[in-house]
Design a protein around this nucleic acid. Structure first.
Lengths: 210, 210
DNA sequence: CGCCGATCTGACTGGCCGTCAGATTCTCCG
DNA sequence: CGGAGAATCTGACGGCCAGTCAGATCGGCG
């Protein structure tokens, strides 16, 4: 899928270099997951891989560039998810369909949590490239919702006051953010299952009316 | 409100020191807003104030400590917001009440955006203290919603499948996250007003049924 | 005016960033 | 199979920032 992976100076790289680059990416993701962005040091990444900092800078301009590459990989993994979303949901099966989508999204998020979280902060802090990946990712899902909601409005199941695009965005927002609350809420009697079920209900209610 | 402000070594500090500490906090917030967390240097903070790094470390153990103090101040500003939330909303006035709340929340968020954003990331990355402030802030609002939703379920306007606490959390999640989407979505025809209106509609629908 | 505690700061150590010149490893031709 | 040349890797370095400490400065009070 990556057209041609290149080193910082623009050269197309061979297989040994590809492997090194991959190991650097994997190490980056591992450290991000274990310790978070703020403690991420490129020295640590290279130590993890058993190489030197200079090598890292041959493939990435800085730590952000590596994270961005990971975020782009995550974007690819997100594409299959939207297959769940099309206007064929009926009031009868909406709950089941919504559940399937939420479960898929949940495991997608679990897999890429650290990277997605950082992608979002960087995007919110104004980084152009991170904004672009996040936009693409969100639009994938928002567009799916939007179509369904527009359909609901057309058939009179949903009020005209809902703007399909913005409502789709609101749903994505809710899903994404709620996942971040998980650990915290579990201390307050809101289990992961309860989160999942609530999400499913809110989703199907908002999309087919209820 | 701060019982007694102290320096790092635990000493209660006088008015000159208080003023210095305040200027450091203000500069921190300013820089956070202008450039984001990742570029925040304590050297810059002290330069902004016209003092030395050593002075900064007299009042805060590190940059995080200053941000945490700001987050605690933001928490205090959030308390008045929940007065909007009590079970007296009726299907007739829910839209207006929801609008008042959303507007208040919007301007609260505008005022503290940078700090709140960072509070959330640090919390999600597992920092205990940031988790605590975020928890308190969220719980304030969630509890408000929870009561109203429980009421809606009791009177049969809302389905029993909704868990009041988790649903409240979902609403908070949606509001918070959607604000982060603002700039990005405005490029896609979703104006700030449209966001506000959608938020209001979803809120009143979810709380009093619809 | 001079003292004393409160507050501030210059100067330093240590660690990480990012670069570059040169060492090492691989490829493939002769 | 040997070795030249390209691809890849790395040691070593200058610069910047975090965090500390001993000592300088300030401000109020007798």
């Amino acid at each position: 899928m990556p057209s041609k992976v290149r080193s910082v100076d623009g050269r197309v790289i061979g297989s040994r270099a590809q492997a090194t680059r991959r190991r650097l990416l994997d190490a980056t993701e591992k450290l991000l997951t274990e310790q978070g962005v703020f403690d991420l040091r490129v020295v640590d990444i290279t130590r993890e891989v058993g190489t030197s900092a200079a090598t890292f800078y041959q493939y990435f301009n800085d730590a952000d560039a590596a994270i961005l590459a990971l975020a782009e990989e995550a974007l690819e993994d997100e594409r299959p998810l939207v297959e769940h979303l099309h206007p064929s949901w009926t009031p009868e099966d909406a709950h089941i369909r919504a559940a399937a989508f939420v479960d898929a999204y949940l495991s997608y998020w679990d897999e890429h949590a650290a990277v997605l979280r950082i992608r979002n902060v960087k995007a919110e802090e104004g980084d152009r490239e991170f904004r672009a990946v996040r936009s693409q990712a969100n639009l994938l899902v928002i567009d799916g919702f939007q179509t369904m909601i527009a359909d609901g409005i057309a058939t009179g199941r949903l009020p005209r006051t809902l703007d399909p695009f913005t409502t789709g965005a609101a749903l994505v927002a809710m899903i994404e953010r709620l996942l971040g609350f998980q650990n915290e809420m579990s201390k307050r009697g809101s289990s992961r299952d309860s989160i999942r079920d609530t999400l499913v209900t809110l989703l199907s209610r908002t999309i087919v009316g209820g």
